[in-house]
């Protein structure tokens, strides 16, 4: 009996539903992926503090356990919903759907989805996001994009974080960017420090441009 069925058809279908739901509300969702400790939550805290007056930001936090990150986000001044995946190593579209129902973002909101810290499994699971962003800290090594090519291939943007540590680590930024482009010729790249503030304007401009594209598409 012929099936010719995509194995991830259910997740892909739910992701497409999430994408349509978000587009209907002019809500931009950004899926943030990285290894544990790359600085996803620190970047979100800083972004909320700096852009909170300009953009409405809400966060979906994915972790295996605890609500620590959701609390950090709330302390920074944004609404957040925590998803605990238990043994699960990545977020799936149905979890994000449930979180969006709980979050009920107003039109124009920027929803940041902080995926489980893992450079392997989240690559395969579309959540319905408008953009996928990989975060890589200079403390991790410049060869991460070629060691985890599936993840970096699937991303629209790579952010190199913790650039304030560059004088203390053996990390060549140009080599890292070249590695990223070798697995994904279309990837955009930024380098910044959430601690010192260096390079953050580029990230904020990227977010503003994504939000503007979304509202332009809604009126097209």
């Amino acid at each position: 009996m012929t099936l010719e069925a995509a194995i991830l058809e259910k997740n892909d279908r739910l992701a497409a539903e999430n994408r349509a739901w978000l587009a209907g509300r002019e809500v931009l969702a950004v899926n943030l992926v990285s290894s544990p400790g790359a600085g996803k939550t620190a970047l979100l805290e800083r972004t909320i503090r700096d852009l909170g007056g300009e953009l409405s930001i809400a966060v979906i936090e994915g972790d295996q356990s605890t609500t620590r990150d959701a609390e950090r986000i709330r302390n920074a001044g944004a609404r957040s919903v925590q998803i605990n995946t238990g043994a699960g190593c990545h977020l799936e579209a149905d979890m994000v759907r449930a979180a969006l129902r709980e979050l009920r973002p107003e039109p124009g909101t920027l929803v940041m989805i902080e995926n489980v810290g893992n450079l392997v499994c989240p690559a395969m699971f579309d959540l319905g996001e408008g953009a996928r962003v990989a975060i890589l800290s200079v403390a991790e090594g410049e060869d991460k994009p070629i060691k985890y090519p599936h993840m970096f291939r699937s991303c629209d943007l790579m952010i190199v974080t913790k650039t304030d540590l560059l004088p203390h680590v053996d990390f060549d930024l140009d080599t890292c960017l070249a590695h990223a482009r070798s697995v994904n010729p279309d990837i955009a790249t930024l380098a910044l420090s959430s601690r010192s503030g260096e390079g953050l304007e580029g990230w904020y401009d990227w977010l503003r441009a994504q939000c503007a594209n979304l509202s332009a598409a809604a009126f097209a």
Binding site: I7, E9, K10
Partner: peptide, 14 residues
């Protein structure tokens, strides 16, 4: 270990 999630999908579809 996303293969576990993928295998669950295979078994469910079949």
């Amino acid at each position: 270990m996303h293969e576990l999630a993928i295998t669950r999908n295979i078994v469910a579809i079949v």
